[in-house]
């Protein structure tokens, strides 16, 4: 009897402990977002989005940094998506399971944990200097694509792995080749999961500052990029610059720019959720 009571008590205690842990994270996040909103919301208007950087906080805007972020995001997607998905398909469906593939597997997971500034140094040497891309949008996008490639590969593999073996067996039994099975069965079935992974990886890329500063992304750019070879700035660099300025108005600007950055991230996560639901229903 006593034993049962004690166990129930432990159960209750653990439950409340769990609730407390959950709340701690959520409350802190809510306070953070709340204070950012209070500081920055009144600063956001059309002028703020379409103006160039300025020494006067109330005149300064994020236009070039925002356009830079959008360019980098689009190019990074275009570079990382095909590479990551193809690598994941190879590892999951084609590669023979053995020492080599498990070595690859461990290393890809490790790469996902490498500090982003290391990717910046790699990008500076390979893309900016050896391939002579300069401090361009393209060099920045390649660098960020490398950065998120491990995440894309890992999450794509997970998504493909989640497709039941019976689907593969069925396809092969009907005489389909491996490529046909991958293209017509596995990819459509796992596409929602793949996309979720890709978009979460991109959400990380859009917030990166360090590797872009290392490859030479600028802080003051009076024009939006017009080609992948143009120089650029991105939102996080602009935010960082504003936060370290003495005049109080820049702090408000930084908060407003953070809201825009958060909106982009939320939007992207929303798209991920939407696609996941859509594709999962299709499969069912």
């Amino acid at each position: 009897m006593n034993n049962i009571k004690a166990n129930r008590l432990k159960d209750q205690i653990f439950k409340f402990w769990g609730i407390a842990c959950t709340l701690l994270g959520l409350v802190l996040l809510a306070i953070f977002i709340g204070s950012i909103l209070i500081d920055g919301l009144q600063r956001i208007d059309w002028d703020f989005i379409t103006s160039l950087p300025s020494r006067k906080a109330e005149r300064a805007g994020i236009y070039t940094a925002l356009m830079g972020s959008v360019w980098v995001l689009v190019l990074t997607t275009i570079i990382a998506l095909p590479l990551g998905i193809a690598a994941a398909i190879y590892l999951e469906e084609y590669a023979r399971k053995g020492k080599l593939s498990s070595l690859l597997e461990v290393n890809i997971s490790n790469l996902a944990g490498v500090p982003s500034i290391i990717y910046g140094l790699l990008g500076l040497e390979i893309f900016v200097r050896i391939l002579e891309m300069g401090s361009s949008v393209l060099a920045g996008s390649f660098t960020l694509a490398l950065l998120i490639l491990p995440i894309v590969i890992v999450s794509t593999r997970e998504a493909i792995k989640a497709v039941p073996q019976s689907v593969r067996d069925g396809s092969f039994a009907l005489g389909a080749s491996k490529w046909q099975t991958v293209a017509r069965q596995l990819l459509p079935a796992s596409f929602g999961g793949i996309l979720t992974g890709v978009i979460l990886a991109l959400s990380r890329a859009v917030g990166e500052t360090a590797p872009l500063i290392v490859i030479g992304a600028l802080t003051y750019v009076p024009f939006a990029p017009e080609s992948p070879m143009d120089e650029f700035s991105v939102l996080p660099i602009q935010i960082f610059n504003w936060i370290s300025r003495p005049q109080e108005g820049f702090e408000v600007n930084a908060a407003a720019a953070i809201i825009i950055l958060l909106l982009i991230t939320f939007l992207m996560n929303g798209i991920a959720v939407f696609f996941r639901n859509k594709w999962q229903k299709k499969l069912g």
Binding site: S135, I213, G216, A217, L218, T219, Y220, V221, P222, F223, E231, N241
Partner: peptide, 8 residues
């Protein structure tokens, strides 16, 4: 003239 400024 496009003036660009970096902070390295």
């Amino acid at each position: 003239v496009d003036v660009t400024i970096g902070v390295s």
